[in-house]
């Protein structure tokens, strides 16, 4: 059974790009458009990994991570995938409960390696 990854990004092309990359790596992909949508999706699916953007309408990545963690999902690795790279933002992500941080544009191999390192 392949592992399932929930990708959260408000940009359809970015989701598509992730879908293609992740599918090539042998993962199943579930998508959500923003934090709110992701939380709804999490209600019905149990992904092995969550990859989320930061800047999104309705609920951003920080809000999503905080919500996920406060729901008691401590074992779900969360990778932030964003163009942001400031320490301040990373610090926020860490406090919110992120596992890792990857800066866009991502290199597929790096992404694959990062996933390997968090997917238990």
């Amino acid at each position: 059974m392949s592992k399932t990854i929930l990708t959260v990004d408000d940009s359809p092309s970015m989701r598509m790009l992730l879908r293609v990359s992740l599918t090539d790596l042998g993962y199943s992909v579930v998508e959500a458009e923003d934090g709110v949508h992701a939380l709804e999706t999490l209600g019905g699916t149990e992904p092995d990994l969550l990859i989320t953007d930061i800047n999104m309408p309705r609920m951003d990545g920080f809000g999503l991570i905080e919500n996920v963690r406060s729901q008691g999902r401590r074992n779900l690795p969360i990778l932030v995938l964003t163009t942001e790279s400031s320490d301040e933002k990373k610090q926020r992500a860490r406090e919110a409960g992120a596992t890792g941080w990857i800066v866009k544009p991502f290199n597929p191999e790096k992404l694959a390696a990062a996933i390997r390192r968090v997917l238990h």
């Binding site: 059974m1 992909v29 579930v30 699916t45 092995d48 074992n75 779900l76 238990h120």
Partner: peptide, 19 residues
């Protein structure tokens, strides 16, 4: 153990309920 065990929980990931 819990860590490795975690993935086991998602036992059956539902088929991508994509957007």
């Amino acid at each position: 153990p819990p860590a490795p065990a975690a993935p086991a929980a998602p036992a059956k990931p539902k088929p991508a309920a994509s957007v």
